[in-house]
Design a protein around this nucleic acid. Sequence first.
DNA 1: CGCTCATGACGACCGAGGTAATACTATTGT
DNA 2: ACAATAGTATTACCTCGGTCGTCATGAGCG
Lengths: 131, 131
Amino acid sequence: MSAPPPLHLRLGDLQLRILQVLWARTEASVAQVHGDLLPTRPLAYTTVATMLRKMEDRRLVQHREQGRAFLYSALVQASDVGSSLGHRMVEQVFEGSLTDAVSHLLRTRDVRREELDALEKLIREAKRRTR
Amino acid sequence: MSAPPPLHLRLGDLQLRILQVLWARTEASVAQVHGDLLPTRPLAYTTVATMLRKMEDRRLVQHREQGRAFLYSALVQASDVGSSLGHRMVEQVFEGSLTDAVSHLLRTRDVRREELDALEKLIREAKRRTR
DNA sequence: CGCTCATGACGACCGAGGTAATACTATTGT
DNA sequence: ACAATAGTATTACCTCGGTCGTCATGAGCG
């Protein structure tokens, strides 16, 4: 097996947007990625293509050929990026306190009731697992 | 009053480390920041000084003079960085689901029992507030 | 056959993070 | 008085994210 997705994920904004498209579509051509991004980010086609190539160098995505076109797919998963961001958030911003981090999350966004219920259930399950 | 801390906080690793020191010390000279960073990041004194100046241009920190030396303090707070990171994490990685984000946090790090208790209490309080 | 379109490959350029050597300057210990 | 020291200012350089323009090529169509 090849390099497990790098631990030091440092993603720019465009890269993250592109990954979002690939996560949603599983596989996508440059044209599709470009199209999906257009509404929010009107970029030149070549910009997307170039970025995809650079991301492939970084082993963030891979491609296979289909006719003339390339079909790209993500090599890093959302959970990888989540771990990276989460670690940064908890360790470097909230001094290792998960509680503080979550507390801040709860305070700064308004959360619907069902979310809170789901979270509560989550905690309880985690507790059961630790017991 | 000047620019309220920018909304699009894009901090590099060193910048975050420096902010950590400033958050902990409230105010610090270049030498102090450099000293605190040494164990984990052996950088030249001037590297830290330069970075601090660049960060001041970006309005991330400010300084006042004390004798010949500068005393720097943070203009962005941990909560600002936390919001930025949290938003990115929830919206761009976990498709807007706070539950998924927290779930991932719980799964990828091992949490002590007291943390879980604290979290549970937190959720309950949030619920009470929404009621 | 020859033109146009779709698509990938390259090369260029800017801004920012990161790193540091060098230069300048004021304070201060002997 | 003067050299060492402790600070800041300046300048430079490299990497990378981001953004494109241009170029080459191949496929399909009139």
